[in-house]
Nucleic acid binder design. Structure first.
Length: 223
DNA sequence: ATGAAGATTGCCT
DNA sequence: GGCAATCTTCATG
């Protein structure tokens, strides 16, 4: 049922494709939300310029340097959280798999409430606002975290024990979602952009749309 | 102390 | 396709 820690005790590039189809679930007082993963990205440690661990251990990425099977949650762009599964680190290095997207298979109402500002639309359209499509609830790393209610308080959470609020279990082997796995460059990374360490189910509607990295315009200096 | 960039998203034209 | 939002983190470009 739950994924054993040994599963994560491998290089992230090996773990990443095997995580597709697995289920991440988060249980809170509000209820349980579960997502079947359809898109992930592997990040290595000191050898990977795109990895948060590239420049060594800091307060933010400390969990990446710890034992495998724990969640590394970081905050970015002043408003978004993203969650990784920590994998085997080679000699003081660190590696992890970023969970980028998936299909909500439990707690969809709660997921939609978290992903919707204000009252939850009932029909196709509510007060001019379109009801969020099911496929968009966890379509993207920050959306996935929002749908599951994941924030920095879960940084370091052990996902391999039954008593944890955040855990990973094997998928049901849903044939409709177990399409062919394809790979490509990672999304939004500014360096090592050519390395094809993004893995996803070909044609799956919950996979996020690819966006190349675009450096933001520097703030204008006023004379 | 300070500033630049960021493993993104949603809304705009 | 373009760009603003928003603030933590890290290096001091």
């Amino acid at each position: 049922m739950l994924i054993p820690r040994d599963f994560f005790a491998r290089p992230s590039v090996e773990v990443a494709p095997d995580l597709l189809g697995c289920v991440l679930e988060h249980e809170t007082a509000d209820g349980l939300v579960a997502v079947e993963l359809s898109e992930v990205e592997a990040y290595a440690g000191r050898s990977d310029p795109a990895s948060h661990a590239y420049r060594g251990k800091t307060q933010r990425n400390a969990v990446m340097f710890g034992p495998p099977g724990h969640a590394y949650v970081y905050f970015t762009y002043g408003m978004h959280f993203c969650v990784n599964m920590v994998c085997l680190g080679e000699q003081g290095s660190a590696s992890a798999v970023l969970l980028r997207a998936g299909a909500i298979i439990a707690g969809e109402d709660l997921a939609r409430a978290r992903r919707t500002r204000g009252p939850i639309p009932e029909g196709p359209v509510f007060e001019g606002r379109a009801r969020l499509a099911s496929r968009d609830l966890a379509r993207g790393p920050a959306r996935l975290c929002q749908a599951l209610g994941i924030d920095r308080s879960l940084d370091g959470a052990d996902v391999c024990v039954a008593g944890s609020p955040l855990r990973v279990r094997a998928g049901a082997g849903n044939p409709a979602r177990s399409g062919r796995i394809v790979t490509g460059p990672r999304v939004g990374v500014s360096s090592a952009a050519e390395i094809p360490w993004r893995f996803w189910y070909d044609g799956d509607p919950t996979v996020s749309v690819y966006r190349a990295h675009v450096p933001r315009q520097r703030k204008l200096v006023t004379p």
